[in-house]
Amino acid sequence: MPVEATKTPVTAFMLVKTTPEWLALTVQERVEAFTTQVVPTIKSRTSGVRSRFYDTEFYSTRVTDIWVWEADDHAAYQLLIDALRETPFWDRYFEVVDLLVGTENGYARTYGVEPVTTINT
């Protein structure tokens, strides 16, 4: 069965490491930097993206945080990355260690089969 012609949601696991500049900010300054410098840029440049944040510095020295970005489609994801690169987030406050990007159950769409999952739907 051919791949669906509809939009395919994209999930990106962005593995980042905090920089000394970010750590030098107070908690309030960090919140302000994110809400005034990062969020408005994302909102003005793209739509259809959501994010969740996970702290990993307790368990890893190479990656201190994982940011999970969900985008409605590949175009929204590309606009998100372009927007982030124009903020202090990218390579100033955080070093982007790796990007792991995929589509949930892509194989199921490609082959026209039900996804194998342990989640009850």
Results as ranks from 00 to 15, higher is better:
A5I: 05
T6C: 06
P9N: 04
V10S: 05
L15C: 08
V16K: 02
T19W: 14
T19C: 11
W22Y: 05
L25C: 06
L25D: 03
T26D: 04
T26V: 08
Q28K: 08
E29H: 01
E29T: 00
V31T: 11
T35F: 01
T36C: 00
Q37L: 06
Q37H: 04
Q37W: 00
T41K: 00
T41Q: 00
R45Q: 00
R45P: 00
G48E: 00
R50H: 04
R50Q: 09
R50Y: 03
S51H: 04
S51M: 09
Y54D: 08
Y54R: 09
D55K: 10
D55M: 02
T56G: 05
T56H: 09
T56Q: 05
F58W: 09
S60R: 06
S60T: 06
T61S: 02
V63L: 04
V63M: 10
D65M: 03
V68T: 07
W69T: 11
A71G: 06
D73G: 09
H74R: 15
H74S: 15
H74N: 14
A75C: 09
A75E: 15
Y77A: 11
Q78G: 13
L79V: 01
L80T: 07
A83W: 04
A83D: 01
R85D: 06
E86L: 03
D91G: 00
R92E: 10
Y93D: 10
F94Q: 04
D98F: 12
L99D: 08
L99G: 03
L100H: 06
L100V: 11
L100T: 13
V101D: 09
G102H: 13
G106M: 09
A108I: 13
A108G: 11
A108D: 12
T110A: 14
Y111E: 15
G112I: 15
V113Q: 15
V113P: 11
P115Q: 06
T118S: 08
